[in-house]
Design a protein around this nucleic acid. Sequence first.
DNA 1: TTGCCGATTACCT
DNA 2: GGTAATCGGCAAC
Length: 196
Amino acid sequence: MRILPADFYFQDTVEVSRQLLGKLLVHEKNEKQIYIGRIVETEAYLGNEDPACHSYGLRRTPRVETMYLPGGHSYVYFIYGMYFCFNVVTGDEHTPEAVLVRAVHPLTGLKEMQNNRNTSSLKKLADGPGKLCQAFEINSSHNGLSLFKPPLTVQEDEFIWQENDLEISERIGLGSSAGDSCHWPLRFRLKSFVSN
DNA sequence: TTGCCGATTACCT
DNA sequence: GGTAATCGGCAAC
């Protein structure tokens, strides 16, 4: 396994979304506790020109400030009063774009994830953005962290996926304020890892 | 300072 | 398939 280099996050954000599929999300909470999962679903959020994005129109508020960090940082935000969502920041300080990691296939730390999620089901462990944060113990304390060093990193191994396993669709859960952008094809998933 | 709403999930029917 | 739970961000007042 090797940590993805900075170059990776300075590609086009849509390209980063696609290429994050199959990569490994690693949370080394401490020496005894490590969580690893393979990324199987992502969504791209395109900053300035994306009405569905928190940083639409280059808006700057305390919450979205971390999206203006250089690519390779984490953007974690709180939603619906009870869940966190984990994003990867892309581009430079002028392009506040990010990729939402929507689902991972759990590999390491399964027992603790089941405990965190209070379920014995392996499938439901991290098959949603709020769920994966709960399983991996990712919260607001991880907002703005560099992804090039522990505790939070994105790594790659030998795994590769086939082009015909890629499914591209519209993004999920966007409100009416997103307008036409809710139809943009910015959601990417590996079909062989998801059921619905 | 107030009030609405959300990049969700679990649970019920 | 529908809805409650639950609270911080943000825009308007």
